[in-house]
């Protein structure tokens, strides 16, 4: 299977966890990687906890199950911190949380010793750049910084192209999203 990175996204309905996993999979695929991007489906309600997953690898991926021991845990809403977020947390795992708090404060809140915690105020960045609290795209910037799963320059070129394809009619959205990714890439803080 090659080197495999497994990612689990925790969000609330409407925050874009599913979209983030799909955009990331498309971007990594465009960068030549083997990818999977899939959400956990249930009753689709705004605000309800949702999960989404990614597998990114330099070889073919045959697994067809949820990610249970993620290499990266992405938290779109810090109020979700609890057992579902820390489930399957290994020592080598990376946790990236959308919050204005420090990684140390979040570690205290999570009550865990393992993993490496990063924080970025993706909601604030989203409001300031896109004009709405949709933290999914800025969090991708933080993910790229922390994991380097796709080189930053290449990722930005691909995202530019993908956002152009998706938002032909709204150029301001494209610029706002790219700026959000770039800012989160710079602002993410680790322990």
């Amino acid at each position: 299977m090659g080197k495999l990175t497994e990612i689990r996204w925790h969000g609330r309905g409407g925050q874009g966890a599913k979209t983030a996993s799909q955009l990331l999979a498309e971007a990594a695929s465009a960068a030549g990687m083997y990818v999977q991007g899939f959400p956990e489906y249930g009753p689709e309600r705004m605000g309800a906890p949702v999960l989404a997953f990614n597998r990114l690898s330099d070889g073919p991926i045959t697994l067809h199950c949820h990610v249970t021991e993620p290499d990266v845990i992405m938290v779109l809403d810090p109020s979700l911190i609890g057992r579902s977020v820390t489930a399957g947390l290994t020592d080598h795992a990376v946790v990236i949380v959308n919050t204005g708090k420090t990684p140390g404060e979040i570690r205290g809140q999570m009550g865990v010793t393992g993993g490496k915690i990063y924080t970025v105020d993706a909601s604030r960045i989203a409001v300031e750049t896109i004009g709405r609290d949709i933290p999914n795209t800025p969090l991708m910037g933080a993910l790229i910084k922390v994991t380097a799963v796709v080189p930053y320059e290449q990722f930005m070129t691909i995202m530019h192209q993908q956002l152009e394809d998706k938002f032909k009619a709204k150029p301001s959205v494209i610029q706002g999203n790219l700026e959000a990714i770039e800012r989160a890439y710079r602002e993410v803080r680790g322990e």
Binding site: Q22, E26, V35, Q36, G37, F38, P39, H64
Partner: peptide, 12 residues
């Protein structure tokens, strides 16, 4: 083919 697992999973 398998619902959601394949129908809604993005793959290469």
């Amino acid at each position: 083919y398998d619902g959601f697992i394949i129908s809604h999973s993005l793959e290469n």
